[in-house]
């Protein structure tokens, strides 16, 4: 069967099996950033954003995303131009094996949209559905805090009429523009 959706900003038709989950369909179509860690909704490695909400794609029958807007890790930055959340994970060394990271980043991206200035407790709570076996979470929490301030700087500059920080760059140690020190 076929499913029509907006995938990473493009109108897309996926050819799928009726029994496929969204995770199956994405991975079969080459979007392998989302990982399978359990298939039962417990690890969060398969997290993607559907219509603005973070969703465990292993639990989502693909038929249900007909007409939906789906974003995967592939929609964020590139290695040269990282999205601020990705850059925060890199700069805070908030990753080891990396298997949990695409799902973690999708969860964080969506979470910071709903809560742009979270405290540590809120971050921990927000990530409680995303397991990480390698890091002990400490650096991930740091990265989320850092990502929140990068994003809010970005927004502040835009509303200022100033130049937005290009994604993937921080205002610190950057010589692209004259202003833009981080507050």
């Amino acid at each position: 069967m076929e499913v029509n959706l907006t995938l990473n900003g493009e109108d897309t038709t996926l050819t799928v099996d009726q029994s496929d989950t969204l995770l199956d369909a994405l991975r079969n179509a080459g979007y392998t950033g989302a990982k399978r860690g359990c298939g039962t909704g417990d690890c969060g490695f398969c997290t993607v954003v559907v219509d603005g909400a973070s969703v465990k794609s292993c639990l989502q029958p693909v038929a249900r995303v007909e007409g939906a807007t789906v974003e995967t890790i592939e929609s964020l930055g590139t290695q040269d131009e990282l999205h601020p959340v990705q850059a925060a994970f890199v700069d805070n060394a908030a990753l080891q094996c990396g298997f949990c990271i695409p799902g973690m980043i999708m969860r964080v991206t969506q979470f910071l949209e709903s809560n742009p200035d979270p405290n540590e407790e809120e971050i921990r709570e927000a990530l409680s559905g995303n397991i990480c076996r390698c890091t002990g979470y400490e650096k991930i929490i740091d990265a989320v805090q850092d990502a929140a301030s990068r994003l809010s700087n970005e927004r502040a500059m835009v509303s200022d009429g100033g130049r937005p920080v290009p994604s993937g760059q921080s205002c610190v140690d950057c010589s692209t523009c004259s202003g833009g020190e981080r507050e």
Partner: peptide
């Protein structure tokens, strides 16, 4: 030093065994 594979991990481009299926 930045972990050598950090950028491919955060962009979802790092390939693990199952990702080679295709």
């Amino acid at each position: 030093e930045e972990k050598a594979d950090a950028r491919k991990i955060v962009t979802g481009e790092a390939k693990y065994t199952a990702d080679y299926s295709r």
